[in-house]
């Protein structure tokens, strides 16, 4: 546990003291701020409807996560491999799962820090005379951060699979599109016959639907379980990948 915390701290501060991370944060806050401004002010469909605003803002955050997370995670393991520090790390008395979990939690903390703008925006709206309900705001934040955990675990796996950072980034985006976007098309599959099972599986993985529920102020244990179970699964895959690579 102590070794895990050391890696976590090292990873979190590495992100915090990297100009690239701050550049990412600037970009995310700028893009999300412009989207959010459009959602609350210029979108006539959401006019005066705080919950609809939260929902649309949550969906926008999910889309941004899709590109932010691979950029954030691509260097986590591949960079260490490229620079040769990975061999040093694995020869220390640290277990593989501690390396993976430490890196995961470090990246996740930074991701959660970036998305603190969601409640912050609600505070700005409140201070300006709006009346947002903070329950849906916090559940949206939780949904975005939980999705971030799932995405980071996938990104980490992509980073463990390849040595060049760019390749890890592209692989991460491709995998996340499969996980984050593909299930949204569940309704296009036929309801009967062979396709009924894949349809059901894709439906339960539809992150847009899950976001909608969260933005309405409903904290669903099923959705959280889905994200955390698959996050754990990808972390296990990453650990095993490191182990296999060690013997390869």
């Amino acid at each position: 546990m102590r070794r895990l915390l050391i890696i976590l701290r090292r990873e979190f501060f590495a992100q915090l003291l990297s100009p690239v991370s701050w550049l990412l944060m600037t970009l995310v806050w700028l893009i999300y701020g412009v989207f959010y401004r459009w959602t609350i002010i210029e979108n006539p469909q959401a006019y005066g409807d705080i919950l609809r605003m939260t929902w649309q803002a949550g969906l926008q955050a999910l889309w941004i996560q899709l590109f932010l997370v691979p950029l954030q995670t691509m260097r986590l393991i591949s960079e260490e491999k490229r620079s040769g520090t990975f061999e040093m790390l694995v020869t220390t008395p640290v277990r593989d799962h501690e390396i993976v979990l430490g890196k995961f939690f470090g990246a996740w903390l930074f991701n959660a820090l970036i998305w603190l703008v969601m409640p912050l925006y609600a505070c700005i709206i409140q201070r300006s005379g709006g009346d947002p309900d903070f329950g849906p705001v916090w559940t949206s934040y939780l949904a975005v951060v939980a999705t971030g955990a799932l995405y980071i675990s996938v990104g980490l796996m992509a980073s463990a699979l390849t040595r060049p950072q760019i390749l890890a980034g592209f692989l991460g985006i491709a995998l996340l599109v499969l996980i984050g976007v593909l299930p949204n098309f569940w309704s296009k599959l036929p309801e009967e016959g062979f396709w009924s099972l894949p349809r059901g599986i894709l439906k339960s993985g539809d992150l847009t639907r899950q976001m909608e529920e969260a933005a309405r102020g409903l904290l669903d244990v099923v959705h959280l379980t889905y994200k955390l179970a698959f996050c754990g699964l990808f972390l296990l895959f990453t650990t095993r990948l490191l182990e296999v690579r060690k013997w390869a």
Binding site: I41, D49, L51, L120, S128
Partner: peptide
Amino acid sequence: GLRERFVNPTRLTGPFTVIGVIVLP
């Protein structure tokens, strides 16, 4: 329906643009 709370969004334009879109980034 979802629509339950109504605010006047035009009032939010200024503060949000300044803080959310300019100051934070």
